[in-house]
Design a protein around this nucleic acid. Sequence first.
RNA 1: UGGGGAGUAGUCUAGUGGCAGGACAUGCGGCUCUGGACCGUAGGGCGGAGGUUCGAAUCCUCCCUCCCCAGCCA
Length: 560
Amino acid sequence: MDQSLEKTDFIRDTIKKDYREGKFKKLHTRFPPEPNGYLHIGHAKAICLNFELAAEFGGQCNLRFDDTNPSKEESAYVNSIKKDIHWLGFSWGNREYYASDYFQKLYDFALDLIHKSKAYVCDLDADQIRQYRGTLTQPGQDSPYRKRSVEENLQLFENMRQGKYPDGAKVLRAKIDMASPNLNMRDPVMYRIMHQSHHRTGKQWCIYPTYDWAHGQSDSIEKITHSICTLEFEDHRPLYDWFLDQLDIHHPRQIEFARLNLTHMVTSKRMLKTLVEQNYVHGWDDPRMPTLSGMRRRGYPPQAIRNFCQAIGVAKSESTIEIEYLEHFVRQELNRKASRVMGVLDPLKVVIENYPQGESEQLDAVNNPEDPSAGKRKVPFSRVLYIERGDFMEDPPKKFYRLAPGREVRLRYAYFIKCIGVEKDSRGNITSLRCTYDPATKGGDAPDRRKVKATLHWVSAPHAVNADIRIYDTLFSRQGPGQDEDFMDSLNPQSLTVNNRCQLEPSLAAAKPGQIFQFERVGYFYVDDDSSDQRLVLNRTATLKDQWARIKKRKNSTKS
RNA sequence: UGGGGAGUAGUCUAGUGGCAGGACAUGCGGCUCUGGACCGUAGGGCGGAGGUUCGAAUCCUCCCUCCCCAGCCA
């Protein structure tokens, strides 16, 4: 690989170093989601990292569900997670694992620690354990049960497993150091009693391992070489290492990186759950959600998300990426792939007065100028058309070079038209435009080489189809929702508006759910599953970049 | 205040003692039958103070700011 193009970051550096030092032969990573919610864009960063690392170094990446807490986990989440990872374009072969697959092995490992006098059964309740733990600045105290004999611990632990105690009565703890400055080392809990049915093991167990006890050992069982996780687990690394060392089993290296944050978004599972459960959005796959299923339904191509994840890189400093950066990759991908069509969101009627009444014709339109193989299609033209209301101004300011009285513009793939009159209602609102067309400009070129400043999209009124277009904006109006206020307070009341006035070219009548189009000069639109033969429903994926909108915005802000 | 991390343009990120580079965003220009795309161009940065060195984003010292940890969550 070209040295200058080779990706580099601290994780890859570490892996290369480990490889040079012969610490492993084949890289093995894993993506370990807990099946207690839907995957979001933050997970995508971890998924891409783990799977791409494996691919780059000729290794493998496992999918492992971290299902150690039956009170929160459901198989419905398992399915959505698998679907989303596949959608992103990654596969884990037959290496679909569950921490719950290892419950027996973990139990045996625990026995081993008890035998080594490195773990004990503790009768303190949750409150008492907290008190004994000490504080950030004060050391903890040994549990009164810390000195139990190996035999007693073995018996008690067996009893725990047999279901002889109620929830919370006892726990199994590692025997490390109650005075450690790292709170995670102050005799952390390994097992808790939960008489709770598990989505995979059913009623087989009533004691469940904690994250700290399950994670490293699961990594080890799967012969993971590099266990990549987020920064908040940095404090846990000494414990991760301690368990593996005491057990003297395969020892992966844990590496921590900074999680992904995006402006105008939240990714905390608690907050996302609240949004769904209190119906602020229409489900986990609402196109405003930062979930992968939401983005899929919004029309974001998976490749755009992967490109984005590559571009943002991986580091240890906490960062918040502007949502515009993600949108850039969405547009980049869609620009190459999406078929162009014409659709008018805010219609203004135009009558071509010199075009024969009752007639129409079919004009050639290019489907995708970025992709000649996409071919051409026909669009009907007639005497009565719709153009975008915003494409006309009666009294245009300097930098506005679209249609205005007396002005000539081109209708894309059609003709030059000139505005010769404006019709208004009694309140002075413009109801329609009177125009003439130049038959010699058919197709969009003038034989006399004269130029026009603007090209407008349009739709023939008698041929137009209608639809519901869901116009999405960011779910939150603040850049960092929930940072200085309750996150619900910065919900954007404008995050969804439905437009049913639109007029679209007739080819859209055949659009099928899952298809995505560029409405020329407007944006990208994805055909939603809610569409039926009776009613087309489109989600606006993203707008096109719009120079005029920016000029307008700047003018308004300098005025005020 | 114990421990663990992090500070490079508006936002990400590269750099590992030798010209601070790239992407997004922004401005300007070009091109164009999408004010899209594309091409070109400009502005703007090493948290601070000392020190070592011919030379410091990089090494040393001190300081400042931010994040994480006191779940039987992950």
